[in-house]
Nucleic acid binder design. Structure first.
Lengths: 246, 246
DNA sequence: ATGGTTTGGTAACAGAATGTAACAGTTGCA
DNA sequence: TGCAACTGTTACATTCTGTTACCAAACCAT
């Protein structure tokens, strides 16, 4: 099969060259662009499977470009930004971005996100978005958001604590998407300053919480199949999730 | 589906920014306003699903604004106030507010209230508001306010004490809305200074009362389905309530 | 292949929050 | 007036959750 074709939109030469080189080494065909004019040329020239779009583009704005692209293309878009403004991320999802990565980022995380978005294709999914009344089916399990209950494959209800349920919701909202501990913590505790690195024990708290949830929903908690560890990144919910409105 | 759109009316910049940031992170599109003039502009600009309205607005008064809005809009309104005046809360309901939150508040509580009000739409419901002659149906049970009797699903009447009935009324008036122990205590005892934190034993008294009511109306008091515990917040009546005028 | 470093798993602990049995004082009724 | 019911209070038990420490696994340099 052909290599996935990425478009990297970044006006900073050093950053652009670094991203292009790294992604090419990782097995992608990568096309660089500096502004919307160049984006258009690349899109007209051939198939693009995913766009990595910097938000700060000199005189142009990545959010505006994203919105403009959505008028005509269904191509997955990952926004990349150095800014940590809380509302910008939400704005990104509002203009149709599929994911959002904050600079500076671990190249492994970038790779994981790119692969995740490529795998699931274009479909908005965010860390914070949750429909409380939906029913989620995953791996033989069911989570009923309206009744707030978890049903095991054997039909029995499993009691989860508030934090465990919160973590499950985050995972259900982001299947196949690697999540850092910071992202998980942000989703569980909205008062946390987003983007702030976790302290040592805060990160361990996420690890312990993941372990506790695993012990309740994994057939083999020591060899988890649903909540996988992504070393150096965080965790990924490696199971298909079917959502039904309540 | 589209994100719920909230309007936060707060003249204190720090408080407004904090609420806006928190609510945006929680998955809402949030629009700030400082006074009635700005409110009008936001409402004219597009759909608003809920208004969070501070009562103390410099030279303007949130209660007056609420009343004014009710002349023209059916948008749910939650009043937010630092004052603890008992009658102010009643005034709020009288001018058409859907809910009332006293500062300082737990962000989780704010979120829970916003979601509850959005879910049930515009419909007056308050902690203290009670139509004593109504008939309430919930979870197979019935409470007849006129006769002041509780009928179990099996058709038999269940005797509740005065305090237990009082608690039930509070819960029936606020289905799906997390209530703190302070709010429950305020509703049960009108002479209590509203907004005052409960003493240790006062809070335990609410816990014991909840336990006693659970033991009478829950199929499994140790695993309650109607009166759920919301750790760190209080309790929530997690059952649909159908009200019929007597 | 080996040793050192980094990262993640998890058992154990501690503090906070909640459930509840038991007790005592209060209230209402016969 | 006596008694039963009611209700607040207390104390103990249980649950929840963050933190710490130890250990195992993975990774990297030599």
């Amino acid at each position: 099969m052909s290599l996935p074709r990425l478009l990297v939109v970044e006006d900073d030469p050093e950053m652009r060259d670094m991203m292009v080189a790294f992604l090419r080494k990782s097995g992608f065909m990568v096309f660089p662009a500096v502004n919307q004019n160049e984006i258009t040329k690349v899109l007209d020239a051939g198939r693009i499977d995913l766009i990595l779009l910097d938000v700060m583009l000199g005189r142009e704005n990545g959010l505006d470009i994203c919105q403009s692209l959505r008028q005509e293309y269904e191509i997955p878009i990952i926004l990349v930004s150095a800014l940590s403004a809380d509302d910008q991320r939400m704005q990104g999802y509002q203009v149709g971005a599929d994911d959002y990565i904050a600079k500076p980022f671990n190249p492994e995380l970038l790779l994981a996100r790119v692969r995740a978005v490529l795998r699931r294709g274009h479909r908005s999914s965010s860390l914070t978005y949750r429909r409380n009344t939906s029913v989620y089916a995953f791996g033989g399990w069911t989570y009923d958001g309206k009744k707030d209950v978890v049903i095991a494959p054997d039909g029995f209800q499993v009691a989860l604590s508030k934090r465990e349920t919160g973590l499950l919701k985050v995972l259900l909202a982001n299947p196949h998407i690697p999540l850092t501990r910071e992202e998980i913590a942000d989703s569980l505790d909205f008062t946390r300053a987003e983007g702030n690195a976790l302290g040592t024990s805060e990160g361990r708290a996420i690890d312990v919480l993941v372990g506790r949830l695993r012990s309740k929903i994994e057939a083999k908690p020591k060899d988890p199949e649903m909540i996988r560890t992504q070393r150096g990144v965080g965790y990924v919910f490696a199971v298909d999730v079917v959502v039904t409105d309540g």
